[in-house]
């Protein structure tokens, strides 16, 4: 059934795969018009409105978890699909992510205090010798938007730093990114370092980046390869056996 919010309905119109239409419509079915307004403003990147609407919703006694699920995450799901299908590109994702952050600023303290667990904990970083981070950052935005707790190690990340972070945060998933053909092999070296440290079985390792492919990831011994940010989220869920989880719980970081 169409939603009453004209702008949001138009956004839902960009979703064309039948099972995704069903899923997306399900996210908005029976939810409050305020959540539709919130989701729409997130999708189009109006961070000031998302900030205001999130505060309004809290003032009207919506729970932080409902605002997150029914407004922000539901909106981000459409952003992810539009990005995957080349309807929008990185600038538009960046403004949506900024809007998400504006809303999360109000929700995070409440969610953290409530002790709700995230979908999983992911460590993300660009490998040693590589300073490119836009792809990795997009993955982080989508992972957080889907309800994962993500710790970002930034760029030029050594194997030791990856190992230390996985141990410190007890992460279930490690994501590595590389843009340069010269730095791709450092992913394999990092996986070897986990093996040598006796930690390989404790973490699922996924990788991505423009020059990579499934074959390269397999050869390195990675558990998975994601071709884009949407794929990264699906992969993380798959690696944790969460494919059926359609509604996420908050990320804490």
């Amino acid at each position: 059934m169409p939603v009453a919010h004209e702008g949001l309905e138009q956004e839902i119109g960009y979703v064309t795969k039948p099972f995704e239409i069903e899923h997306i419509r399900g996210l908005f079915e029976g939810t409050d018009p305020l959540m539709h307004e919130l989701a729409y403003n997130l999708i189009v990147g109006n961070h000031h409105d998302v900030d205001r609407l999130t505060k309004d919703a809290l003032d009207r006694d919506f729970s932080a978890n409902n605002i997150l699920d029914d407004g922000l995450i539901a909106g981000m799901a459409i952003v992810g699909i539009k990005f995957r299908d080349n309807i929008i590109f990185v600038p538009e994702v960046l403004v949506a992510a900024r809007a998400m952050k504006a809303g999360m600023k109000h929700l995070e303290p409440i969610l953290s205090a409530s002790g709700i667990e995230p979908l999983g904990t992911v460590i993300m970083g660009t490998v040693k010798g590589d300073l490119h981070d836009i792809g990795k950052n997009l993955c982080i935005m989508m992972l957080r938007g889907a309800g994962f707790a993500v710790h970002d190690l930034g760029v030029d990340t050594s194997a030791d730093k990856f190992i230390d972070a996985v141990m410190e945060h007890d992460a279930q998933v490690l994501g590595m990114s590389a843009l340069l053909t010269t730095t791709m092999p450092n992913m394999g070296k990092t996986i070897t370092a986990f093996e040598e440290a006796g930690l390989r079985d404790q973490v699922k390792i996924m990788c991505g980046g423009a020059p990579l492919n499934q074959e390269f990831a397999d050869d390195m011994g990675a558990d998975g390869y994601g071709k884009d940010a949407m794929d990264c989220v699906a992969l993380a869920k798959s690696l944790l056996g969460l494919e059926e989880v359609m509604k996420a719980v908050p990320a804490k970081t």
Partner: peptide
């Protein structure tokens, strides 16, 4: 700048 070594390209620290 990060000028790197023989086996890698120099890069601007765009962050």
């Amino acid at each position: 700048m990060q000028w790197e070594e023989k086996d890698n390209w120099p890069t601007v620290r765009m962050y």
